[in-house]
Amino acid sequence: MEVDTAAINTIIDKYGKDKSYLLAMFQDVQRQYRYLPKEAIQYICDRLHIPFSKGYEVATFYSSLSLTPRGKHIVHVCLGTACHLRGGPNILDSFERALNIKRGGTTENGLFTLESVNCLGACALAPLVRVDGHDYGKTTPGSVKKIIKEYGEPT
């Protein structure tokens, strides 16, 4: 894949080409592409004069970075302790069924990616689901299909 080097340069320069900000640069690139393309890792490593392997090591260590393309809408099912106790795993299970993908997967039409998250810190609303930054509180297995419908059909 071709990456927009001008945009990546802007990101690198924003952090003053400082190697310490490698993770931050990756995060910013991911915000543009919804994932972290290999070419972007390579490009950033080259400009910062760090080995590609070190960039890859960082990119795979932090779970908020994705090395594979993700869907248009990202569904985050919170599995923090409060959500776990209030039925979070059942919500994840319902999403897996409704979207016909497993956690971490993307629907074939590229519309949804399903991920779990350790805690979003809105425990009063457990079990919580966040789609593209929008929160759905006190979800039930019955409300899962309704949430999906707001964004389109999974197939």
Binding site: L23, Q27, F61, S63
Partner: peptide, 8 residues
């Protein structure tokens, strides 16, 4: 400011 990357 440094942002974490989802690693506990």
């Amino acid at each position: 400011i440094f942002r974490g990357g989802g690693a506990f």
